[in-house]
Amino acid sequence: MANNLSGGFKAYLHRDLLIALRDRGDLSKPLMFFLLVAVMVPLAIAPEASKLSAIAPGLIWILALLATLLSIERLFSEDYADGSLEQLLISPNLLMMPILGKITAHWLVIGLPLTLLSPVIAIWFSLPISAMVPMMLSLALGTAVLSLIGAVGAALTLPRQGGVLLALLVMPLYMPVLIFGSATIQAAVDGLNWLAPLAMLAALLAVAIVLCPLAISAGLRIAKNG
């Protein structure tokens, strides 16, 4: 008699997507942030195409990282506040599937739109067209890893909502993703073989999918009695 709460992956994916699509405002903030900061770069640094395309790979990735970080905090905080996290913890099944469901919903709502929006910024930074596909591939894989690792930080800092602490916890863990992500775009821009860093990103994603839910379920149980 496993009730709906332990329905697992599909149930939580469906529910979180429904909730995210219901309040559209919440959805667009990280995307607006992504575009807005991209506009600031040429104003702050230099409009010349040569200068911009030199820093474009790293910059696109830093913007994607910050946009994900901005939105990851609300992954568990609403459930923690209204008590549905308590009901989730009581469900007999392992926490892994519901957690993966919620993170996939978060990725579909934040990560995927970022990836689809990134060509706009690539054009703003006069990135060569050949680098467009590798950039979107690296962002698609990378934002998933960012959501997974960010969810670990969100679960551990649940009792006290402070953006800075979450960033401090999660930033060091984001470094490898940032390195391989921007290296993929840089390799594509230089015409080198960009599959190698992309493969590393996929490996990081595989490791994150397996290990992060363990840390997150432990973090959620700890937060409940924090």
Binding site: L156, L158, P159, G162, L165, G226
Partner: peptide
């Protein structure tokens, strides 16, 4: 820094342990 999110010591210890394992 994670210590200050938790009011009671047991939860703070466990959270610190989980974070250092992830680290």
């Amino acid at each position: 820094a994670l210590r200050h999110t938790y009011s009671n010591n047991e939860a703070a210890d466990k959270a610190g342990a989980v974070l250092s394992l992830v680290g």
